[in-house]
Design a protein around this nucleic acid. Structure first.
Length: 587
RNA sequence: GCCCCUGUAGCUCAAUUGGCGGAGCAGUCGAUUUGUAAUCGACAGGUUAGGGGUUCGAAUCCCCUCUGGGGCUCCA
């Protein structure tokens, strides 16, 4: 098992290395083509990426789709020419004169230590400052395609010039490229924004404002199923469910530090009775007030306060994206207040809760990040150490693989982030478990310890789904809109064949509804085929055809959205089957 | 916020490049009563995102604002 895994990893790495080189080389070939067509272009950087490559250029006008075609055509010529990639080490003075007109390259050189030998890679007439490595010849880029153009700041800094970035991808075979393009098309087909419209789940309106979601009855149903499950799971895991308001006084946000450090993400103050109030960007201060509402004993810790809390954050207009990035969203938030000796168990409990929940939704692919203390931080070193070790141990003791992001923690504490991958392998950050050494200090949180003294509790901030909006966006794409039975807004559609079957159809609906199922009757004056098509497109799990044959035996003819026709079965048998399916889902 | 692209009926898209804004689906009405992915017909549906400008004439060209999209930066 282990050997097999290692072997596989080896293959994967070899392929990744090959693609990495090939794409890096493709970026050079592209830059070559761009310089031929736009001799004045200044080159930025052109690295390979996860799925392809890009190269940034400063040009007098942005690239058009037609430019991309011309560039791609020139690239094909270069590739057909099968020119060798040649590495050459050069001295600094030479390099400086070689790239005298390439100011960005000169800037890159300045960033490279004097002791480092500079190298350039050439193919044909083209040369680029580059460490390599590359493929042997331009012909070793079997399949390449340019995809898009976008603006990108030089060095990612919004105060520096904006360059024009061309994205492309390259693969070892045309087939692999086609497969990749097919994956992109599949991703588009599953886009939650498209499915949200088609399935009537949610919408966003000019009249309401960007980044603000309204959930329609069907989307609302899915969401409430998720919420109901979330609540019962949290109650089962010893959480207390609380509610808090959407606004709070300026003083609260002053104490929490949000007004000093988070203001650019907060909306302008509201004036109420000559007092300033702010719309909440986070739930923590409210939960803290609940903690502070009484003197806490070490005996009542850990105290876990959970809330589906809706927060509002100002997000720059360019970053909004469907349900994934919005301005008003509901966090499945909780704050755990505990003693030092409870930290490890609490973190472990959060992880177990997380994986139980992710399993229920069918996510088995995820990546975990442990982020440690940054340069600037608050709190004692010893406490940071303890907290970070607890996070690490909780992961290790469960055999969970993780990557360490050294110094990637927040200034107020270390954290674990979990990104879940959807059916197409795209990663979305949802879960976050963060220690907070700042707020307990600011709000002077204490508990009476066993020795009669006052101690400061640890505070852990955690969200499992992250935000309901984002999570539902991920879910929609994960299931491609075909929700499992327990989440399906309409679990069954009864399809009467002719008007004379309407009465029986209504009784089928009533009986199933009686048992708690969500059922509709398609009573339009349409043909059965049309009704089936409609239910099929709405991704309804069960289609129940009723006609003369069924009425006699108190039966329904069952068709699944996967296409199988199960034939006639007694209504009770169907109800049993559906109930069994619900039970098996674990929700 | 920045760069580029975009906005036409509820939805998906046309409109010969400046010359009377159409179609399919959805909707309403009528006919049909059908056995596992689209029955037929009629009707209705629009200040072409909003505002300004050029022109005899603007969906089309120009300017401003707003939305949406692909990125950059940032993030649940």
């Amino acid at each position: 098992m282990l050997d097999h895994g290692t072997l596989e990893a080896g293959h994967v790495n070899a392929l990744e290395t090959l693609r990495h080189r090939m794409r890096h080389s493709a970026a050079h070939v592209m830059a070559d083509a761009v310089l031929k067509l736009f001799p004045e272009a200044k080159m930025g950087i052109g690295p390979p990426t996860q799925d392809g490559f890009y190269y940034d250029f400063e040009v007098s006008r942005p690239f058009t789709p037609e430019d991309l075609e011309r560039i791609e055509a020139l690239m094909r010529e270069t590739i057909a020419g099968n020119l060798p990639f040649l590495r050459e080490e050069i001295g600094r003075p030479e390099a400086k004169s070689m790239f005298a007109h390439q100011s960005y390259k000169l800037e890159i050189m300045e960033g490279i230590a004097e002791a480092t030998t500079l190298s350039v890679y050439r193919h044909g007439e083209f040369a680029d400052l580059c460490q390599g490595p590359h493929v042997g010849n331009t012909g070793d880029i079997p399949a390449v395609k340019l995809l898009s153009v976008a603006g990108a700041y030089w060095r990612g800094d919004e105060h520096r010039p904006m360059l024009q970035r061309i994205y492309g991808t390259a693969f070892e075979t045309q087939q692999a490229l086609d497969d990749h393009l097919a994956r992109l098309a599949e991703a588009e087909r599953r886009d939650h924004r498209t499915l949200g419209k088609q399935l009537g789940l949610f919408s966003i309106h000019d009249e309401i404002g960007p980044g603000l979601i309204v959930w329609h009855p069907k989307g609302g149903l899915v969401r409430s199923c998720v919420e109901d499950y979330w609540r019962q799971l949290h109650l089962r895991r010893g959480y207390n469910l609380v509610y808090s308001p959407h606004i709070g006084r300026a003083q609260l946000w002053q104490t929490s530090g949000h007004l000093d450090f988070y203001r650019e993400s907060m909306y302008a103050a509201l004036e109420v009775d000559e007092q300033e109030y702010f719309l909440k960007p986070m739930n923590c201060p409210f939960h803290i007030m609940i903690y502070r509402s009484s003197l806490r004993s070490y005996r009542e810790l850990p105290l876990r306060l959970g809330e589906l809390g809706t927060v509002y954050r100002y997000e720059r207009s360019g970053v909004l994206h469907g349900l994934m990035r919005v301005r008003g969203f509901t966090q499945d938030d909780a704050h755990i207040f505990c003693r030092p000796d409870q930290v490890l168990d609490e973190v472990g409990g959060v992880l177990e809760l997380t994986f139980e929940l992710l399993r229920t939704f069918g996510f088995s692919d995820y990546s975990i990040n442990l982020s440690t203390r940054p340069e600037k931080y608050v709190g004692d070193l010893a406490i940071w150490e303890h907290a970070t070790e607890s996070l690490r141990q909780a992961l290790v003791s469960r055999g969970l693989p993780y990557e360490v992001d050294e110094g990637g923690g927040a200034f107020y504490g270390p954290k674990i982030d979990i990104k879940i991958k959807d059916a197409l392998g795209r990663a979305w950050q949802c879960t976050t478990v963060q220690f907070d050494f700042n707020l307990p200090e600011r709000f002077d949180l204490t508990y009476q310890d066993a020795s009669g003294g006052r101690s400061r509790p640890y505070m852990v901030h955690r969200a499992i789904l992250g935000s309901l909006e984002r999570f539902l966006g991920v879910l929609i794409e994960h299931y491609a809109g075909a929700f499992p039975l327990w989440l399906a807004p309409v679990q069954a559609v009864v399809i009467p064949i002719a008007d004379r079957h309407l009465e029986y159809a209504a009784s089928v609906k009533a009986k199933l509804q009686e048992k708690g199922f969500r059922v509709e009757v398609d009573d339009r004056g349409e043909r059965m085929n049309q009704k089936i098509r409609q239910a099929q497109m709405q991704k309804v799990p069960y289609m129940l055809v009723v006609g003369d044959a069924e009425i006699g035996g108190g039966a329904v003819s069952v068709r699944l959205r996967e296409g199988q026709n199960l034939g006639a079965m007694p209504l009770d048998a169907l109800a049993e089957r559906m109930a069994g399916e619900l039970k098996a889902s674990g929700a």
